[in-house]
């Protein structure tokens, strides 16, 4: 019953949205190059999927590799920085302020440094995901309560034990929040970096070039693929999160 009440409105909106979309396109006989009807997009998806799958995998690989390197680097850097809370407090404001830099604008430079192929896109995704992960993980590692630290001291716990048994598990919820957000960010970063220039077989270039040629249905089906891959990535990370922190979800807060 709860399920129906929680999800029925959303499902209803989806169905209504699709019907409305079809109806509007049909009723006002909107040109397909402006807004193709859903069934046309699905049809185009069926026709072009070999190209889309190749382009999708190409771009997805960039996103996943960049995410893994950026987030991995962010976590590692946070772990190192957390060893000296004084140092951490100095760098934290700068890392937070890095959110104000439109990193994506560096894409053309990345091409100069790492080539027009996947390397440059991965570099951008690494840059985009590194700082949010670093900031969240570091905050998580440092937000252990003073009483908790006193308790560990009274048990003569070593630094290593304190880190492995208290700081690390304590930081997991914040770390995973960042990892999830970065999964989305990674897909966006990969596609948009390709808007600045990339090989033809990439999703971003495909979207940009088909759109500029008014091949709208192809563009939309490519966007759909990008969305699907983005969601897939997000939920894959969310699944890992559930497996890594069963205690967090039994509570039923999420």
């Amino acid at each position: 019953m709860g399920y129906v009440r929680d999800y029925a409105p959303a499902a209803l909106v989806l169905v209504m949205g699709l019907v409305l979309w079809e109806a509007v396109v049909f009723a006002f006989s909107i040109e397909f190059y402006l807004l193709p009807a859903p069934h046309v997009i699905v049809q185009s998806l069926r026709e072009t999927y070999p190209v889309l799958v190749e382009a999708g995998l190409y771009t997805f690989t960039e996103a996943v590799l960049g995410w893994a390197l950026g987030c991995g680097g962010g976590i590692l850097a946070a772990m190192i920085a957390s060893r000296s809370p004084a140092f951490a407090r100095v760098v934290l404001p700068y890392a937070v302020a890095s959110a104000s830099v439109p990193i994506i604008a560096l894409a053309p430079l990345a091409i100069v440094w790492f080539g027009v192929e996947q390397g440059s896109k991965i570099a951008i995704v690494v840059l985009m995901t590194f700082f949010p992960t670093f900031v969240s993980t570091l905050r998580g590692l440092l937000s252990v309560t003073p009483q908790s630290l006193e308790l560990m001291r009274s048990y003569a716990a070593t630094e290593r034990q304190l880190f492995l048994k208290i700081r690390l598990p304590h930081s997991l919820p914040m770390m995973f929040t960042a990892l999830r957000a970065c999964a989305t960010l990674a897909m966006i970063g990969a596609v948009v970096s390709e808007f600045f220039g990339g090989p033809v077989k990439s999703l971003g270039v495909y979207i940009k070039s088909t759109a500029s040629l008014f091949q709208t249905r192809q563009a939309w089906s490519a966007i759909l693929v990008a969305c699907a891959l983005g969601l897939l990535f997000y939920f894959a990370v969310a699944l890992i999160e559930r497996l890594a922190m069963p205690w967090h979800f039994e509570r039923g807060e999420h």
Partner: peptide
């Protein structure tokens, strides 16, 4: 490890069950 300490707040760890919380000092 001659001390046992109890504060005003319990300071238990969310990611450990009750049993595992009591096990912690033995692990350490």
């Amino acid at each position: 490890r001659d001390y046992g300490i109890v504060f005003q707040t319990p300071v238990l760890y969310d990611w450990r069950t009750v049993l595992e919380n009591v096990q912690l000092p033995l692990e350490l």
